[in-house]
């Protein structure tokens, strides 16, 4: 063989390509070549030349008619490929958690609106204020407050809130400029409550409402002491 020194690299490359096409490389070497191929134009060209050189040897092998099941099987696989879109990159459209979250939010909105509409029907005037009370951690809605006038509110549960047996839920409100929250009384989980605000200033936009976890008889201090379970602010509806 008459290789000049500078041909050594290309001779090695060609030998590797030749053995790859011939089939004598082991699994590890084969995968190494296949990983290199897309990025190595020289190796790719060398492999292509060897494929072309050795291709006629396939004609030495007698043909073998496939079974009747083979084409239908291929066709089934092709059909399976075509049904769903090929694995696209994970776009927002395919994010399951996103849709779970949105559908949970949609369900919550439906419940809120449904409750508002259902309970509003008997009253002559539509609610002028609405408050959605959500859990601080995950913003899950748990209660709705609606008021058809500024002196009377209704607290409506959206589900049964789990409360430890030795605790109660206490209902509080605080308007802007108030010194602190004022108790509106104890609330049982799942209970709908109708409350006059006759001893308080009229309901105002952005007024805070919350439910805290307190001892069996409510807060002993007259101010919230336990963790906030649900919280929200009043919104004036048109």
């Amino acid at each position: 063989m008459t290789f000049k020194p500078e041909d050594n690299d290309s001779a090695d490359l060609d030998a590797l390509a030749g053995e790859y096409v011939l089939g004598t490389l082991d699994a590890q070497q084969r995968h190494a070549v296949e990983q290199r191929l897309p990025h190595d134009a020289n190796l790719q060209a060398a492999v292509e030349r060897w494929e072309a050189r050795l291709l006629p040897l396939n004609d030495l092998v007698p043909a073998q008619p496939p079974s009747r099941q083979l084409w239908p099987r291929i066709e089934r696989s092709l059909n399976a490929l075509n049904v769903p879109a090929p694995q696209a990159k994970a776009s927002w459209w395919n994010l399951l958690p996103l849709w779970r979250g949105l559908s949970a939010a949609g369900l919550a909105a439906t419940l809120v609106l449904g409750t508002v509409l259902l309970t509003a029907t008997p009253s002559v005037s539509p609610p002028t204020y609405v408050v959605v009370l959500v859990a601080p951690q995950d913003q899950a809605p748990g209660w709705v407050i609606q008021a058809s006038n500024r002196q009377h509110i209704q607290l409506i549960p959206l589900g049964i809130t789990q409360v430890p047996t030795d605790k109660t839920l206490q209902f509080w409100t605080k308007g802007d400029g108030w010194d602190g929250p004022v108790s509106l009384g104890l609330v049982k989980p799942g209970q709908t409550l109708s409350l006059p605000l006759d001893r308080l200033p009229p309901l105002e936009p952005n007024q805070l409402f919350e439910l805290t976890l307190e001892g069996p008889d409510g807060s002993a201090t007259g101010k919230p002491t336990g963790p906030i379970q649900f919280i929200g602010r009043a919104v004036k509806v048109i």
Partner: peptide, 16 residues
């Protein structure tokens, strides 16, 4: 392509 080459391709694959 299947009609044309499946038997020869199967021969090659069978041999290996």
């Amino acid at each position: 392509l299947y009609a044309q080459e499946s038997a020869r391709l199967l021969g090659v694959a069978r041999r290996i």
